[in-house]
Design a protein around this nucleic acid. Sequence first.
DNA 1: TTGAAAGCGCTAACAC
DNA 2: GTGTTAGCGCTTTCAA
Lengths: 341, 341
Amino acid sequence: MTTSAGPPTVETIAARAGVSIASVSRVLNGHGARPNTVRRVQQAAAELGYVPNGVARSLKGGRTRQLTFAMPDVGNPVYVSMVRQIQAIAKPSGYRLLLHSTDAVAADELDVVRSLADRTSDGLILVPIRVTGEHLKVLSDAARPVVVIGSLPDGAPVDSVRADSVSGAVLAMRHLLAGGRRRIAFVNGPDDTVPGRNRSLGYRTALEEAGLPHDPALTVTTEFGIAAGAAATHRLLDADPAIDSVFCANDQLALGAVHAALDRGLRIPEELAVAGMDDSELARAGHPALTSVDLGSAERGRLAVEMLLARLDGGDHGVRCETVAPRLVVRGSTVAPERAS
Amino acid sequence: MTTSAGPPTVETIAARAGVSIASVSRVLNGHGARPNTVRRVQQAAAELGYVPNGVARSLKGGRTRQLTFAMPDVGNPVYVSMVRQIQAIAKPSGYRLLLHSTDAVAADELDVVRSLADRTSDGLILVPIRVTGEHLKVLSDAARPVVVIGSLPDGAPVDSVRADSVSGAVLAMRHLLAGGRRRIAFVNGPDDTVPGRNRSLGYRTALEEAGLPHDPALTVTTEFGIAAGAAATHRLLDADPAIDSVFCANDQLALGAVHAALDRGLRIPEELAVAGMDDSELARAGHPALTSVDLGSAERGRLAVEMLLARLDGGDHGVRCETVAPRLVVRGSTVAPERAS
DNA sequence: TTGAAAGCGCTAACAC
DNA sequence: GTGTTAGCGCTTTCAA
């Protein structure tokens, strides 16, 4: 029986209420007890401002009520919208959210998965930058349920949620083509990633579909970023002034393309149409606002956390793999508003 | 002695290495042991893929190595840049980061502080939406160290980091005035908050400094958001076409002002200059890019986490209160580039 | 140097 | 309905 030092524990309450610690626990967890006992325990707890020690509870129960979300970069709007959804669902379900930035380092991704063995988190949502064989190995003997946001090879024993960036790119391209654009440049991000290759595939697919030739000179690969997008667009337009539209791998690049066009005195969308991807907050920032393809980052976040919660609730169903459909959002950067200014 | 069920524990390792659990613990924590013992324990641990149970460790040690960051909205770029800094510093210091969105609900803010008593987190960085008397009361008997990002009354017994939005607003206003602007409108966010009142104060201070009258008709208060900023600006310009510049309480509002101006066919910055605040990623998104005042959100995040870590490292110094100086970032929305297009 | 044992705060099985 | 007690996995005295 400790003295009054330190915060109150079940023992403190028990002493004050004149009951055993077991009764304290029962009352506090809403299990049966005589009304008189209930009253005394609750009063003692209230008077002492008792708050159960969550760590002790976790040790006993084997669950921490914590979820981890690990992604490459906290600042990226795409991940921010995932965090937002995850947090919005995890919180009312009684889970805290642990945030982990892997800084796009593969070794760090592996570490997060391995560290599930420290029992500090009940489950993990991981957005890997690239999936290696090592990833698959580590993922398949993770100590806790994991849901991957991204593309996994068929048969990987891990739940996952993926975007469909091929169709997304096709959607944007069809829209440009439908608007009469014929010389469509393509500013892609790094093309050694799965999404990078997929967007490129979508671009070529849509051209083929329309019976247009694929001119490699119209494609530029660059880092993500507004400045990079502007530079790439300048390069494209310098080489080929006949370009009538630019399709960009994300909104930052597209914003850069808009800057470049306006700096050259081109009118958007009349002389140059620009389309981006992600439909982040940035898409609405520019003027004209960006036409963009929503790859469903919020939706992917929502699905991922729901799949994880289902696993945690003992769902022992087979491996799930959901694909989120892209959605084209048309704005002023590709289509002039009805009433011209 | 448990069977092989469940993940390995100190006991499993001890059995395999033929030593006591105490020796296992010592070796694993780098305390002295005979070389032979060290070798056997390490080998057993490696073979079993042992990972210490973090929860048990926390229960014993009284520390979780977790920090909590609670702010009103996960999606707000200002808080995102704080998260980024906090995470960047907490991680190498061996702390995990728990994210909590209060959704701007004061009761939720109080709950986060109170829940520090559950020992689930070693410390808290809180961005309150508004500080009430109740906040001060709850904060002063928090169970763990807390650092507040925001303005606290003098003498509050809590570490804090604040922005200087009065000076920030003055900075932007002086810049507009120096550019020859005389009829400066002001689009403020909700003015029943401390920052709201401060920006308003800065606006009036700068006008007075310049010997200009304060015309209440030039000020509009509105919700944050691009659409709200555009609507407010249209209203202002409808009422007074002589307005030559708009100072906005944040970048979203400023972007809205830019949209409104361009929709009316006004040239920026020649016919209308626009300045924002926060210098978020949005400021670079528009064309022309926004002049904005950086209120140091990244810097505030950095300071807050450092103050918290100092507290946790046993620093029992007095209450600290740091103020971060604002910084004006001039871009095309207030000053035309050298070479006009 | 090492092992036995206590105990962090809690929940739950078991006996009364 | 209530109390006693074991035990979650770990670290750390205290003896040997």
